[in-house]
Design a protein around this nucleic acid. Structure first.
Lengths: 213, 213
DNA sequence: GTCTATAATGCGATAGAC
DNA sequence: GTCTATCGCATTATAGAC
């Protein structure tokens, strides 16, 4: 395959930012940031160790002093992405009161905001997870399962309390989750909305979808 | 990178089926089908010409008698995927009457059904489009733009006729489109729904989201 | 921890016989 | 249209000096 002569772009141009706290310090963190940039651009299979090392400004061999393989770089990115999502959802839920309407709005708002704040991380986390071995993917899958559980529990509570009118909770969870996930792909500084406006709008959509009254 | 020893899987196991009519006949069609299977499994960058040829049962060199490059195989897949979506949406809209409520339900139903019928094609079409050069991606992008236009027009009509109550049409289109797109990733024969049940459920969700009454 | 050098492999694509 | 054989190159990862 000859040189393409063009830049493959999956999303609106944004910088490869990682959330504080869950990101490792020093060179490890810089490699992770470079890996995010490269994998977001070319995918896991399409991006190379040499490209990542080039972005960091180190030799490709040096990278192996920090990560044992290319897969482990992706695995840590996927872990960080899921961890940030999970902690934000849990925090939102904790401060949302005991009514299902408030809880659902808080969950959707948090999901939208995290996807708007870290779009590259969200895309890599979701689109490249399949490239990991079951062992390396397991921690992320566990966190994803807990996120899904939170949403299902809120929907179930809402139906029980007659705050929601939903014939099927599973289908609704799929639809609501899809809405927020996709924000990472189109939201950016070029859009005529602030992140808060999207979060509020999508929370309202979710409440309507759930038949809240 | 050593042999992984496991099978990367992006979706529930389904066969690589292509829609009739828009798919080329003969060996060209069999290559396209094999390409769909390989790209869905490993992505465009991760799948190889040799793998595709192996699935077809021909030598890798023979493939170049039918497609000039690996990119052209993906380009035709992406074109077929967008063409099938566009024709199904247009057909649905044509038979949906002149009220926005019926039109929106028909569009969402059609979108869900095409994603449920051709999940592998939908995933490749959406996740690997970015790997194509602007020239090869252009026909698909044009079709995508027209699909989006259909949805926006229906939402606009509904607001004008007061059938819908929507503060923002663009955001609603993003949310509704995301719902249906994501069906390709989770729907399968293992789910407790028929394709019709999902289509009906999601059409109802879209109407609620739009504030239909 | 960082480098140079390289091993071992797989890749896309082409040449040329049939 | 299909094959065998191969070119030229990029890849992941390692060995070993400093």
């Amino acid at each position: 395959m000859e040189d393409p002569g063009w830049e493959p772009r999956r999303l609106a141009a944004v910088s490869a930012v990682l959330p504080e706290g869950v990101t490792p310090p020093g060179t490890r963190g810089r490699i992770l940031e470079a890996g995010l940039s490269v994998f977001a651009e070319a995918g896991f299979a399409g991006g190379s160790i040499r490209q990542i090392a080039g972005v960091v400004g180190i030799n490709s061999a040096t990278l192996y002093a920090h990560y044992p393989s290319k897969s482990h770089v992706l695995a840590e990115l996927v872990r960080v992405g899921h961890q940030e999502l999970h902690s934000r959802l849990a925090e939102a839920l904790a401060g949302a009161g005991d009514r299902a309407t408030g809880q659902l709005a808080a969950l959707v708002r948090a999901q939208v905001l995290v996807h708007a704040d870290y779009p590259l991380l969200a895309v890599v986390t979701n689109d490249e997870l399949h490239a990991l071995s079951p062992e390396l993917a397991a921690p992320a899958l566990e966190l994803r399962s807990r996120c899904r559980r939170m949403l299902l529990d809120v929907l179930e509570l809402g139906v029980k309390d007659s705050d929601f009118a939903l014939p099927d909770i599973l289908m609704a969870a799929g639809a609501i989750g899809a809405m927020g996930l996709r924000v990472a792909y189109w939201f950016g500084p070029d859009q005529p909305y602030t992140r808060e406006q999207v979060a509020d709008g999508y929370a309202e959509f979710a409440l309507r979808l759930a038949g809240a009254h």
